[in-house]
Amino acid sequence: MLVYASTAITMALVFYSIGVWSEKLQGQLKVWHLVVFYLGLVCDTIGTMLMGELAGGVTLLSFHGLTGLLAILLMLFHAVWATVVLVRNDQKARANFHKLSLIVWLIWLIPFVSGAIFGVAF
């Protein structure tokens, strides 16, 4: 199960990074970015659930647990807000969306890195 969990979390990193950085480089939120954001969210959620099972249950009473929950909630908010921006087709919002994306991505990296450190070290 560790292989599946690690693969899912790594795919979340790949999808989310591609979506966020390509959106920034292209200068505008596009539909395919939204698809990649949702793929990252799904992979992160699956990976987190599998890791929780491996750990004997998810505890939110830790740095990793709290930041992980925050990251998934922010990813969900980010994807839903991207959907709203695309549906409204507000060109200014589409052009500035990368600012939110970068913040959410940076916050998401905290539990990703802490999970890798704590998982390897302990």
Rank of each mutant, 00 (worst) to 15 (best):
G115S: 14
I117W: 09
I18G: 09
L25S: 12
V85N: 01
F118G: 11
M75C: 06
G57I: 10
V87P: 01
A82N: 05
F15P: 10
V35S: 10
F77V: 04
I72D: 03
I46E: 07
G68L: 04
W105R: 06
K30V: 11
C43K: 03
S6V: 11
S22H: 08
F118S: 12
I110Q: 12
L25G: 04
L41F: 13
M49H: 08
V42R: 07
T7M: 00
Y16T: 12
T83C: 11
I107F: 05
V14E: 02
E23N: 14
Q91Y: 06
I107V: 10
A12D: 01
L54G: 15
N96V: 05
L60P: 00
I46V: 13
L76E: 05
F118H: 13
H64G: 01
I107L: 12
T83N: 15
V35N: 09
T67Y: 02
T83H: 15
L50R: 06
I18N: 04
P111Q: 10
D44V: 03
S114P: 01
V120F: 10
M75N: 15
S6Y: 04
V104S: 06
L66N: 01
F118C: 03
W108D: 00
M11G: 00
T10E: 02
F122I: 10
I9T: 04
F63N: 11
S101N: 13
F122K: 14
F112N: 08
S22Q: 09
Q91N: 04
F122D: 06
A121G: 05
L39V: 11
H78I: 09
F37M: 08
L54W: 09
N89Y: 03
A93D: 14
Y4D: 12
V42T: 15
G115L: 02
Q91H: 10
V42H: 14
N89H: 11
F77H: 09
T67G: 03
I103N: 02
T83L: 15
L74M: 10
F37N: 11
V35W: 09
G40K: 02
V104D: 01
L106T: 15
L61I: 08
Y38L: 14
V3K: 00
Y38P: 03
C43E: 07
L69E: 08
K99C: 02
T67D: 07
L13P: 02
M75H: 05
K92F: 04
A12G: 02
T48K: 12
C43Y: 08
D44I: 04
N96Q: 14
A121E: 09
A71I: 01
Y16V: 06
A93L: 05
V58I: 12
L73H: 00
R88F: 05
N89E: 11
A116S: 09
S6G: 12
V80D: 06
V113S: 13
I107Y: 07
T59Q: 08
F77E: 05
L100F: 13
H78Q: 11
D44P: 00
L66D: 04
V42G: 13
V3P: 00
M1W: 00
S62A: 03
V31N: 14
S6W: 02
A121H: 06
V87R: 14
L41W: 06
V20Y: 04
W81Y: 14
L54V: 13
L109C: 14
F63D: 09
